[in-house]
Amino acid sequence: MSRRDIVVGLALLAALLAVPALDPSRYIIGQLTLFFIWATIVTQWNLVLGVAGIFSLAQTALFAFGGYVTGMIGLYFGWPLWFALPVGGLAAVAFSLLIGVACLRLRGAYVALLTLAISQVMYLLIITDTECFYMDGVTCRNLTGGTRGLTKYGDFGFREILGAQWILGNYYLGAAILALATLASFIIIRSPLGMAFRALRDNQVYARSRGISRFKYQLLVFAVSAFFTGLAGGFYAGHFKVMGANTLYLSLSLFLLSMVIVGGVGRVWGPLAGAATLMIADEAFKEFVEYRNLGIGAVMVLFVMLLPKGIAGTIEDTLLPRFKRAPKGEGQETG
């Protein structure tokens, strides 16, 4: 981890912790909390895509899986969400291993299509879930909540502690999860494991001769990313108090993928830059409800056309060396 990264990281963390002191509206706190969730998923997806080189589109499936497991444990076993949350994360790990064993040995584009299909199947199974699992008074409830979504599993209990300021509890919890996820992604990108992946990508023959097993490392990174992604899912469930199949919409998945790519695939700061950019763009277009999606679509197209290395990639490779003579090798993570 370079000094620059530590400074940037601490400054960002300090800024996020200080935001509530400015007494912003609940809407802003809510949007920032949502940003923490998306950014957590995006940092992990960046590891999968940009570091491990797995062309997976199942990241939101892992997210939803973590969220549903957390919610179900809260609902059916009556556990407090604080305990259900890590279980949700671990469940996402188990799910990722299953997907990984089935798909990761395949060629890149096949992985993309199969993982996309897995998310879609999960979505279809949930929205077509009409069987009664239990009766809630006179209404019939499905195991997964079906189209109505899973509810009534409680929350993180900040209402009892913080009263009207409960949302700040969620805000800080979300920030903590994002900080942990970002730290984990740093460690992986800058660690020997990250090096091993660069070796794998740059020189397959060398890597094989050193006995580096691509599959084993890929599975490892996929599982680590699944843990934090699952945590984000559990946190989402606890924050919104409803877990629905809308978390599995293709549009959400590709919106988050766009964040990864707009930010800069494989770059340390890419995910945060990408998530922030697209959420701000989304926010800006809210004024023009009619053209919101149209605008998002155009932003996505224009970004990949004009900045194919993403924001972080362009800054690291083009802008920084121009302004100050950056030491050679910096910002070359992705080769």
Binding site: F55, N293, V301
Partner: peptide, 28 residues
């Protein structure tokens, strides 16, 4: 769109995002 992206080394990933952006535009 595609014409301008063909020489991009990350074409395979970036074109997914670009074509999805186009899908959103067409849908709207």
């Amino acid at each position: 769109v595609v014409r301008f992206m063909l020489t991009d080394p990350a074409f395979e990933t970036n074109i997914i995002v670009a074509s999805f952006g186009l899908a959103i535009i067409l849908e709207n």
